[in-house]
Amino acid sequence: MDLQYMISILPEFLRVIPITMLVVVVSAVFGFLLSVPVAGIRIRKVPVLNLITDLYISFTRSIPILLQLFLFFFGIPVLLQLLGFDVTNISAMTAAIVCLIIYNGAYMSEVIRPAYLAIEKGQHEAAESLGYTRFQKLTKIIIPQMTPIALPGLGNAIIHLIHDSSLVFAIGVVDIMGLATIISSGSFGMQQVEVFLTVAFIYWGISFASEQIIRYLERRKKRVLNRTGYEMKEEAEYNV
């Protein structure tokens, strides 16, 4: 095995880490923003919309993420054309981000929903009986109690997202994995082990760092949960 070679290609990989990061951060942030109304619709069982979100969640849950990526990459232009836009293709990056936002919107909504449902009815009623508006009740009482319950689940969502993001090369995004395929095919199939081992180390590093952050959040959560007396409810049923 050629260690020297591995070190020599490392800088190239470090240069594309921001691309992976961009995919992860944008998908996480907008996925979260999407997950809030989705959870809201399911909690309040809004007619019709409730049915749509059920289908949406079952779709993202059942179909392999790789297949979802292809569906979005080839499907979005078709959809846009049907809507009358003159688009024949979209960038792989856009398709990847849209896909992961939609995936995380579903995933995270299934973290937020049980966290909301874990809050006792009495907490709502105490605030209501004192004349809190709905917004005041949510921001002052309910969300602060949901946060420690939901944080570990959201952390897991982000770890999964980091892993899933390694699949976006399949539709042509030159992220870490994308670069790896380019380099390994450029070297005529030589030193493939070195290339992918380097990639493995990079993912290991990223995951290790994010796990540390999540551990830290877990410790905080335990402290807050001890105080409020809530049990952790089970996590979203996603297997990735």
Binding site: G122, S129, L130, I141, Q145, V224, R227
Partner: peptide, 30 residues
């Protein structure tokens, strides 16, 4: 609701707040 106050069988104190914060909160928020 702002003219009435309820004392519940199960107390229903805000679990994320200390005793004094429980008493202060509605005065500040509402």
């Amino acid at each position: 609701r702002r003219k009435t106050a309820m004392v519940f069988q199960q107390y229903n104190l805000f679990k994320n707040k200390t005793a004094i914060e429980n008493v202060m909160d509605a005065q500040m928020v509402v």
